[in-house]
Design a protein around this nucleic acid. Sequence first.
DNA 1: CCGAGGAATATCAGCGCTGTAAATTTCAAG
DNA 2: CTTGAAATTTACAGCGCTGATATTCCTCGG
Lengths: 346, 346
Amino acid sequence: MSDMKSGRPGNRVRLEDVAKLAGVSMKTVSNVVHDYPHVSATTRERVQAAIDQLGYRPNLTARTLATGRTGMLALAIPEIDQPYFADLARHIGEEATRRGYRIIVEQTLKDLEAERAVIRDREEGLVDGVIFQPVRIDTMEIARLRPDTPLVLLGEGARPLTADHVMIDNVAAARDGMDLLLRQGRRRIGFLGMVRRDPTQSTHLRLLGYQESLLAADAISDPALVVETDWFGVDDGITALRAALDAGARFDALFCRDDLFAMAALRVLDRAGLRVPDDVAVLGWDDTALARYSTPALSSISPDKAAIARTTLDLLEDRMAGFDGVGRHRTVAHAIAERDTTAVSG
Amino acid sequence: MSDMKSGRPGNRVRLEDVAKLAGVSMKTVSNVVHDYPHVSATTRERVQAAIDQLGYRPNLTARTLATGRTGMLALAIPEIDQPYFADLARHIGEEATRRGYRIIVEQTLKDLEAERAVIRDREEGLVDGVIFQPVRIDTMEIARLRPDTPLVLLGEGARPLTADHVMIDNVAAARDGMDLLLRQGRRRIGFLGMVRRDPTQSTHLRLLGYQESLLAADAISDPALVVETDWFGVDDGITALRAALDAGARFDALFCRDDLFAMAALRVLDRAGLRVPDDVAVLGWDDTALARYSTPALSSISPDKAAIARTTLDLLEDRMAGFDGVGRHRTVAHAIAERDTTAVSG
DNA sequence: CCGAGGAATATCAGCGCTGTAAATTTCAAG
DNA sequence: CTTGAAATTTACAGCGCTGATATTCCTCGG
């Protein structure tokens, strides 16, 4: 078949070679490659034979230059090894593959300059569209640097009117989570962690939902129940929660900003001799692998990541197809994955 | 500065536009863009001004077509959301960025056809090199489908003579891990999980190291201590270990094939009322986020992922530079991250 | 003041493919 | 057999940039 060695390294087979062998024009070969309908069966057959014989594979770069489409999308996220973003990358990757795109992953490492580079797009024509979860760059700046490449933003970082945006309703999701805890009769529900300088709105919105629920319920609303942290991550969570306990704070549930803080909670509570969920219930956010695999298994607010992926690609394809209206904002469903840490004993 | 709106959407600024404005040839502009040394200061200045004024950004695709280099590497892994691969992707991504490449992530989802596609490379000229951790495709087939794109393989899946290969010494690492447990006086050390149909060699090699250590030590070597599983993953691990305990197996330590199985162990042991590490020590493999964040914190064999990334890129750049010798195999260092699950009480 | 020799800049042919428009062939109807 | 419309196929000009190969411009020793 096509496993013949050409023996001429670096001597690629081009469209023209196929055309010559098949005795047709380059364009006809191109038409065959693209399944263009108006090609006679005999021609198609002859060309296909030539393609197989030569082992021809189209050169993507040349095609891109000629068409202006690259078939690639950039996914710009803070860190690929953070469980939530790894999950997200998987879903977006699968959805993109399904639709015929490839994904370039760009890690911004929460660096402002790196985020600017994503928007500014130092080079050009590399990708057809960009999916970007900003952390540090703000709304104004995105609007100002607004790229000509179609862009869809994720998360609560920035929400300029110029770009599309996909998120879940953080406040509502937080209330839903709180409802679960309240229904169990939990009354001293803490919030871990109120990240002091979260450049995004996420923490704020989740805290808002938490507070709204407390107000609407017959539960204790006490600033001491809100545990502040300096930054994101398990270690910050551990430090902060430990300090809070040492300072005398007492909880019968911990509503955590994300799964990482929830892992911190499990660690600290365990050390403090408190049982989960009997003494303290714990609820995370993001429903990452961490939640599924921890012991006890962590209950977690679960954004519908597949839906995020689908919606994001929908919006992006729209833009790539030429839509040029004002930024659209889509809210995607969430659920609560109930596991051990909010189980009702009995 | 350059934030002037051109107002002509889709009307890109090209090298020629800059050249015209600066009153020089395209080539000179190109030289300025590339910091070619032999350009007079005045010319350089004038050209740079034109670049800024027009907001010119080079078109990567055209450059690629002209040079034959894309500046992109493909990273083909089973699943980006598996903690180990997420970690790996991060390190390789960072190293690649450092060296001026971008990464295209290709998820094979452990699908044979998808793996074949990675090697066969349906299209061409998309990436300069490929980093690939195969799971199902075998050595012979890789050799047969051998692509003209430089290729470096990761892991123990396949090791054809035709491609470079980076791994850690699984047998030695397993022995090191066992030594740790043996030094603590553990004698009934189990192996979780012996994945029955692991298409790669990893499980086998780790089991081998486990067995070698047992033979060399004064410990119990009993087939009942080796817990077989149908497949990878926490759930398989849970099922298998639970069954083993039910069948009467008793351990004072569990050497786990990877962190996922270790998480399964923590879950099952907890349910069984066994304390970790007092009753049973647990050792994982891969040193993923799971290990760092679990409670108790999981000790784990820790491949030097940064070194893997570096070595891989070294080999790949070598190939991209034209090296065409027989496949080289590099072994990268490993360590043991000692945490709670192998702590000595005292 | 001339010519050598290096520095600075320019010319131009592609890289491999596709869109457009035009040419050619095919075929049913007249 | 024609003839015109539809079906196929082709020619060719780029897409935007760079490498190789000129060409022009200086500077300086003799």
